[in-house]
Design a binder for these strands. Structure first.
Length: 278
DNA sequence: CCGCAGGCCCCAC
DNA sequence: GTGGGGCCTGCG
């Protein structure tokens, strides 16, 4: 595909970072693995990256500063782990998935992604996002391949095409959100306290407690957000409630109180535990 | 006794 | 997953 050997690519020294865990923990969907490399479509760029050793990232398509921000490498990892390491279950998860990070993805794409996630699975979400990008997003060529940038707010302006992207009942939510939400609304949420930001998001059609928490956690820096999906529900009930059925509201309150200001990281570790048992 | 807020279940989307 | 309806409960 390229005459350049990997030796010519820049390297970034990393600590407490695992690329696979970070890219494959269900927070991002536009990730492709080709040979030994991951290709991640982030905003208007195609990031090509691999972890050639535990402490080395080789990359192309972005600069160092971008990588540090996107992968949240400036977060105090030891501190985060110390906060959520409350019991033997978490200790095990933290050890097993060490280096998992919560990325800082684009809030708009994150919002649409998780609207697509309602009653779906990961391959289906990926299909929806690929289709939406192909139908509405700008095309770019890189590494001999064609890629589509994710369409911005206002660009998802054709209901029929949104339906053609196989979004099903989510199509009307996507169209409505496209017509009412812009970048400034989303960046404004950053400045609000968690409860207010969440309330503003759940005002949007197709966005309830879970999806709001995903957007807050994965794109707006609210590390205390604690999304309850079916996987988390199952594992929380199993590990902390002797398999008793607990309402989502109660599980949410439990997670936030028990794990504290980095509850969202705890949620991701638990998600990984739940998925590997599948 | 009656009315409404809050919690929960159900089901179409 | 969400949202809206139906239904039960509890307090005023």
């Amino acid at each position: 595909m390229s005459f350049y050997s990997s030796k010519t690519l820049p390297k970034l020294l990393v600590k407490d970072f695992n690329l696979c865990h970070t890219l494959l923990c269900g927070q991002l969907f536009r990730v492709k693995k080709i040979d030994a490399w991951f290709y991640v479509i982030v905003k208007n760029r195609i990031l090509k990256v691999r972890q050639s050793s535990p402490e080395t990232l080789e990359y192309h398509g972005a600069d160092k500063r971008f990588l540090i921000d996107f992968f949240a490498l400036d977060e105090p990892y030891d501190d985060i782990i110390a906060h959520i390491d409350k019991d033997s279950h978490m200790t095990r998860a933290i050890k097993k998935f060490h280096g998992l990070r919560i990325v800082r993805q684009d809030p708009w794409e994150c919002l649409i992604s998780f609207i697509c996630s309602a009653a779906a699975n990961i391959p289906k979400i990926q299909l929806n996002l690929e289709n939406l990008s192909e139908y509405f997003g700008e095309k770019v060529k890189l590494h001999g391949l064609e890629w589509h940038i994710f369409p911005g707010p206002g660009q998802l302006n054709n209901y029929k095409r949104i339906v053609m992207a196989k979004t099903g009942f989510r199509a009307k939510h996507i169209k409505a959100v496209n017509d009412t939400v812009d970048h400034s609304f989303l960046s404004f949420l950053n400045k609000l306290p968690y409860p207010e930001a969440k309330k503003a998001l759940t005002q949007l059609p197709g966005v309830g407690s879970k999806i709001a928490d995903c957007v807050l956690l994965f794109s707006l820096g609210f590390s205390e957000a604690f999304p309850i999906d079916t996987w988390i529900k199952k594992i929380l009930q199993e590990l902390y409630f002797k398999n008793k059925t607990i309402s989502n509201g109660e599980l949410h309150a439990f997670g936030r109180n028990y794990f504290g200001k980095y509850a969202g990281y705890a949620q991701q570790f638990l998600y990984m535990l739940a998925r590997e048992k599948k």
